[in-house]
Computed example of a mutant assay.
Amino acid sequence: MSAVTVRAAAKINLHLGVGRPRPDGFHPLVTVFHAVSLYDDVTVTPADDWQVTTHAAGHVDGAALPDAGDNIVDRAAAALARHHARPVTGRVEVHKSIPVAGGMAGGSADAAAALVALDRVWDLGTSDDDLLALAAELGSDVPFSLVGGTALGEGRGELLTPVADDGSWWWVVVRAAGDGLSTPAVYRRYDELRPDASPEPAPAGVPLAALETRDPELLANALHNDLQAAAVDLRPDLADTIATGEAAGALRGLVSGSGPTCVFLARDADHAREVAGELRDGHPTVLVAHGPVAGAHVVTVEAG
């Protein structure tokens, strides 16, 4: 083969319960991941050397992309190569449409896509269990980026249980103007704001029950993010963005993960487009997406 392209989706957290930090420094989480139709594509072409090139869509802040050699794709390639005791080779092109440093796991999507594409190009046949284990080493969100759909995440988020989700959920995604938010900085602020946080994260029973109803009004009432207060404290403009979206008719607005992207649940596709139209005045990046969608998957294979 001459090239393989793998597509991976952005995620939002329908529920994000955060516990007090564990002795190892990580926060225990209970979260409901949900993959939505904003994608990054990773294309790998066989080569004798190694090179990663990133192309950003117009709405993606190219200045926020990591430096060459410091990309999570590089780390994913190194991890897979170590697992199979082989060299790191190939030419990789990352086409980014998921907002960078926006709380939507764009980097994790790239890592998952790279694992799948390199496994195919290198003809390794890595088992699903081993891919998930490698993904968990790369970051808490990377295993879900492999799996996609809707899933319950526990531990650091890497322990996944697929959730049956037959709903069709429509979202408006607003990438706040200005700098992104560092996930570690948001967690530090959470710890400062919640010194008395329980060691046990808030359970996800309410949103899981709402998903079963396929009723967007019920899901809107069940959305929850323990990191939202910390993100808003660091970026007070996010509160204005959420208020604006809800005033425009969204059923509910929420900071996505650690932010600063905000997501708004709509009743259906037409309603999402209406809300997006209201929000485009004053917000440079407003996108419409639906979920759940598939995890990292091959979209093209070019024969050599």
Rank of each mutant, 00 (worst) to 15 (best):
Leu181Ile: 00
Pro184Leu: 03
Gly106Arg: 10
Arg156Tyr: 10
Val174Met: 07
Asp141Thr: 07
Asp119His: 05
Val172Ile: 11
Trp170Ile: 12
Asp110Cys: 03
Ala68Met: 07
Arg189Lys: 09
Asp166Ile: 15
Ala185Asp: 13
His95Leu: 14
Glu93His: 15
Pro184Asn: 04
Pro99Gln: 05
Asp179His: 13
Ala78His: 11
Asp129Phe: 07
Arg86Cys: 15
Gly90Glu: 04
Ala135His: 14
Gly103Pro: 02
Asp166Arg: 14
Gly106Phe: 05
Gly180Lys: 03
Leu160Gly: 05
Leu132Gly: 05
Gly178Cys: 03
Asp119Leu: 06
Ala112His: 03
Arg175Trp: 03
Leu181Lys: 00
Gly90Tyr: 07
Gly155Pro: 05
Leu159Gly: 13
Glu137Phe: 04
Asp141Met: 09
Asp110Ala: 02
Glu154Asn: 12
Ala151Val: 12
Leu80Ile: 14
Leu131Thr: 13
Leu115Arg: 07
Gly139Glu: 15
Ala78Gly: 11
Thr161Pro: 09
Thr89Asp: 06
Ser182Met: 09
Val173Gln: 02
Ala77Lys: 02
Leu132Met: 06
Asp123Pro: 09
Ala113Leu: 02
Leu115Tyr: 01
Ala81Thr: 09
Pro184Phe: 06
Thr161Val: 13
Trp169Glu: 02
Arg156Gly: 09
Asp74His: 07
Ala111Leu: 03
Pro162Glu: 08
Leu80Tyr: 11
Ala177His: 15
Thr89Ile: 11
Ala176Gly: 13
Asp119Pro: 07
Gly103Cys: 01
Leu193Arg: 14
Asp191Gln: 06
Ala111Glu: 04
Thr150Val: 04
Leu159Lys: 15
Ser140Glu: 03
Thr150Phe: 03
